[in-house]
């Protein structure tokens, strides 16, 4: 985050008198992050065009080929499956589940936080105690427990992550609403007699939701990690569907000889995390500019 220059100092001559125009400054992190994330999505969507290999087709004689082998750019795993194809098709699963599993907590948490912060009272008290209870449990223990209870598969992952994830959004949005509702623009909206739902949706929501969206970026990374972890524990996407978590788990056995089998999907997770972190930084920068 850039610090605000002390007024009168570190101002270049002329900057103070610049007309207040809509500042469209170059937002590096946002552009790089969006580009990177866009490329990942494109790679996932156009996976069949990038590689003709089947991500689940086994070919035991061709197993454990090193990267650069003819026909297998990134080599093959122990069943002879093409690693590049599995990475690309794995992105389809992981990115989709990661993004989708964050959307419903974001929406549910934002709505509850909005209501809780605005109206206060018993609803606020009860909701915040529930939030405290959910937060008190370690995230992974709760998610693993829920997925275990619901049975493995993407559906259970969505449900489990929603049930645990909404609390963070509810807390963030509630805090923002507590500040915003005493801002004079919110008072003015009330004094002019606008209905409450309108004040909440038109005046408060746009001013508080960006914080939640910023958090959701890092939450996607966390969710992908959760899926990866669940896959590693055998509670994630059932095999042989490619997913980065199960790839890391399988590659782990060959750490000393074929280290890239675990490192390549790990690298994919890191790139995704980096892209989303950059987007989050860029959003914060935009937010601070107003």
């Amino acid at each position: 985050m850039t610090s605000v220059p002390f007024p009168g100092r570190s101002l270049k001559p002329g900057t103070a008198t610049k007309p207040r125009r809509r500042a469209r400054r170059f937002n590096g992190p946002l552009i790089i992050g969006l580009t990177l994330f866009g490329l990942l999505i494109l790679a996932a969507v156009f996976a069949p065009l990038i590689t003709s290999a089947d991500p689940v087709a086994q070919n035991l004689p061709q197993s454990l080929l090193p990267p650069g082998s003819p026909g297998h750019l990134l080599g093959t795993d122990r069943f002879g499956r093409d690693v590049l194809a599995r990475l690309l098709y794995g992105a389809r699963i992981d990115l989709r589940v990661g993004v989708l599993a964050v959307v419903s907590p974001l929406i549910i948490g934002t709505i509850l936080g909005l209501i809780s912060g605005w109206f206060g009272g018993w609803f606020d008290t009860v909701l915040m105690r529930i939030v405290d209870m959910v937060v008190a449990f370690p995230f992974f223990v709760l998610v693993i427990g829920l997925v275990f209870a619901l049975g493995p598969g993407t559906g259970s992952i969505y449900v489990a992550i929603t049930m645990v994830g909404w609390v963070a959004y509810a807390r963030i949005v509630r805090g923002e609403v507590l500040i915003a509702k005493n801002q004079e623009y919110a008072l003015a909206a009330r004094a002019s007699g606008l209905p409450t739902w309108r004040i909440l949706l038109r005046h408060l929501l746009p001013n508080v939701v960006l914080q939640a969206v910023v958090f959701s970026m890092s939450d996607i990374v966390l969710t992908i990690l959760a899926i990866v972890t669940l896959g590693y524990l055998g509670l994630g996407v059932p095999p042989p569907t490619p997913d980065w978590g199960s790839m890391i788990q399988e590659g782990q056995q060959f750490m000393l000889t074929q280290w890239y089998l675990a490192a390549l999907p790990g690298f994919a997770v890191v790139i995704t995390g980096l892209a989303l972190a950059l987007i989050a930084d860029g959003l914060v920068e935009r937010m601070n500019r107003r």
Binding site: Q183, A188, A191, G193, H203, N207
Partner: peptide, 19 residues
Amino acid sequence: RRFVQIVFQDPYSSLNPRM
């Protein structure tokens, strides 16, 4: 509501920055 209206003190927080 229409009969009485108010002008607030702080013009920096009295207008919705998103509208």
